[in-house]
Amino acid sequence: MAENNEKTTMSRRRFIKNSSYVAGGAIGGGVLGTVLGRNLLNDNQGTAPEESSGDSSQNFNRALMYFTREKDFNILSQATERIFPDDDNGPGAIALGVPFFIDHQLAGAYGHNDREYMQGPFYPGSDFQGYQTRLKRHEVFDVGIQAMDRESQKEFDASFEELEGEQQDQILKKLQDGDVKLKGVTSSTFFELLRSATIEGAYSDPLYGGNGNMEGWMMKEFPGNYMSYIDEIDEEEFITKEPKALRAHISTQ
């Protein structure tokens, strides 16, 4: 319980800052937003290391369940950061832990399409028939990440990791448009998986390893997991609330 109280105090401080910032009408204010984002990370490192996204040495969850080569993981990380970049609103995909979220998801039911129909025969479908590759999602990511690096070498004579942001965007755009040949799957299928997984990692409950410190939610002013709004739903004013994660629902911690 003590731990709970500490967390609440910590995040209330964060909450107060956030609401005054909104009340001040400075939404989108570049400097303020950046300062806020950084402060949040620092706060957490100081008071709640077990929840920190910034200090990965303290978070044993920040390790690889799926990827075997760090290079692949780095390429993935940089791609997610281009899709959901750090900006005035707050942290980008890497600071939110999105690459670890994707790594962990690829190791489990999502990566292995466990609850999906994967019987053959396989034929290419029309644009209206959906996922039709025999590759499972983890294999699609393997093939896609290798292709990103290969394409980077071809276009810019450098690894994807070494490219400038705008060059990385060009590679990603090519994938999105289906203009990169992959074995067994279209590059647009891979890109759409990468894009949606990035958004999912930014905004899912922090229990999955992304949305670090609930900062994805804070950027969006989504309060997460509240039991009831029955006394507030008829209020005219927008109500900013301190976010709560599912962990608050576990009664025996």
Binding site: N113, E116, S126, G130
Partner: peptide, 8 residues
């Protein structure tokens, strides 16, 4: 057209 499975 050839019908294909709704895989997801």
């Amino acid at each position: 057209e050839r019908a294909l499975p709704m895989r997801q």
